[in-house]
Amino acid sequence: MTNSHSPIAEMSIRAATPLALLISAYLLFAGHNNPGGGFAAGLVLGAVVTLRTLAGLQEPTYATALLVSGVLIVIVVAIAPLLWGDPLLDMAVISIRAPILGTIKSGSALPFDVGVTAIVVGLIVALLDGLSDPETSDPAGRGNLERNS
């Protein structure tokens, strides 16, 4: 990771965070009727996380928790219908009146998409964890490696 942070970059990233969160929430909710969906939402959210991590605002250490919870949410949505005697992944549809978006016909597809989002963010975090390369910024470590190879 870059060790030199510019304060301006840091500030703008902090400022951009809520905006990006909003965009990704929109993508998540709007997906059923307009372009978007859990995957896109996850990637946008992932972009924020990336920026924040690169700026040193957070550490990429929580990937597994996101992955596990994402998979569990998705699975719960998948098998819940079985409890009612419906087939696997039978999505329930309900209508909700939401303040800004108006009437949303939604249902179990929404938590399903939330699970997807969690997994995608988890993947991005894992990637950040994996690509953060202690050796590149640490000449001693690199030397150590060269001796090994």
């Binding site: 419906d86 087939p87 696997l88 992944l89 039978d90 999505m91």
Partner: peptide, 8 residues
């Protein structure tokens, strides 16, 4: 044979 229609 059993057929399961996923999601019905």
């Amino acid at each position: 044979t059993t057929v399961v229609r996923v999601g019905g």
